[in-house]
């Protein structure tokens, strides 16, 4: 029975093996230093045990050489661990440009997940292997944390903002999804499963589940029309609000003179607190939509506004506007 005990979680993402490698390295260094100290202590304790009450050992004041040695060696090892860990960390939180998005909303005590195609799941996440999956996450109440041990991936999920993380599954299977940040009564039941599937199976699952539903962008468009957003954010004429076409990912100039990249968080904030970051040339006319749209609906609106990029000509060169603005400011 003891031979069945696992001491490593499954290795099921591109990151998992890399994290384990660092784990083994630090374990090796730790075991070495632990044994070194323990052997020395044991050896000294026996070799220099008190043989007579009259013993008065000669005092040793210290040794600069030794002090330097045991300062410099831990320093070098510490910096190696820092560098290695930092490279991994940078990769973990820099999602590749290609790949798919999945939207996650945490609430006490469940995970609500939406796929851009419109599929919605609770406490389950289906993903294909071999494709980077970027998670765009927020919480409806307290702080949660999205943790998949088999992927060595964890990211806090905060109310009031979007956090992102990504992974690429490498091995089909069913893996634990845990909430890792204590969130109240049923924290330990805020768990679920991630199903990593072969791409073909994933496409089947997607088609089977999404046949009857609208995509997130379509649902967002419906909501957009329902709320009458287009009345002001019209493309033609002299609209009262700025155009949303090609907005996502572009730098916009604000009334304050600063520029800001219109990312998911900015769009979310502008729906809830329109006056917080007004675009240059527009007045504070827009009412807040706080209380009228929930986090999942906000994500759909964001998905719709994002989709508007694909309809515009310069969607392929989306950062252009941003660069121009930056250049202007630099001059």
């Amino acid at each position: 029975m003891l031979s069945n005990i696992q001491i490593l979680p499954e290795v099921a993402s591109t990151m998992a093996g890399k994290v384990d490698a660092l784990y083994f390295f630090i374990t090796a260094v730790s075991v070495f230093f632990f044994l070194l100290v323990m052997l020395l202590v044991t050896f000294f304790a026996i070799r220099f045990r008190r043989r007579s009450e009259d013993e008065r050992p000669k005092p040793i004041h210290g040794s600069l050489k030794l002090e330097l040695l045991w300062t410099v060696i831990p320093f070098i090892l510490g910096m190696a661990m820092f560098g290695w860990g930092a490279v991994l960390y940078f990769d973990m939180f820099t999602p590749p440009a290609e790949g798919m998005n999945v939207y996650v909303v945490g609430k006490q005590w469940m995970w609500k997940i939406q796929h851009p195609e419109g599929n919605r799941e609770i406490n389950e996440l289906h993903v294909p292997v071999g494709t980077p999956v970027k998670l765009i996450m927020t919480s409806e109440d307290v702080i949660h944390s999205f943790f998949v041990p088999a992927f060595r991936m964890k990211m806090d999920v905060l109310p009031g903002r979007y956090t992102t993380a990504w992974f690429e599954a490498t091995k089909p299977g069913k893996y634990h999804l845990f909430c890792a940040e204590y969130c109240g009564t049923k924290h330990s039941q805020m768990t679920g499963s991630v199903y990593a599937m072969e791409p073909v199976d994933y496409q089947d699952w997607l088609a089977r589940e999404s046949a009857a539903t609208l995509s997130m962008a379509q649902a967002g468009e419906q909501l957009y029309n329902q709320l009458g957003c287009g009345t002001c954010h019209a493309q033609e004429g002299d609209p009262r609000g700025p155009s949303l076409y090609g907005l996502h990912g572009r730098a916009v100039e604000l009334l304050t003179g600063n520029a800001i990249t219109a990312d998911d968080s900015y769009i979310r904030e502008s729906i809830l607190l329109p006056a917080a970051k007004l675009v240059a040339g527009y007045g504070p006319l827009m009412p807040t939509y706080k209380g009228q749209v929930n986090e999942e609906e906000l994500l759909r609106l964001v998905a719709y506004i994002k989709s508007l990029n694909l309809d515009t000509e310069d969607s392929t060169s989306e950062p252009r506007g941003g660069k121009e603005l930056e250049e202007q400011r630099n001059e």
Partner: peptide
Amino acid sequence: GLFTVGGLTGLFLGALGLDVHVHD
């Protein structure tokens, strides 16, 4: 013995990419 183990395992938690997995 115990403090050495405690201190050394602090290195695991200080190393960014590894901490992400073992945090919490």
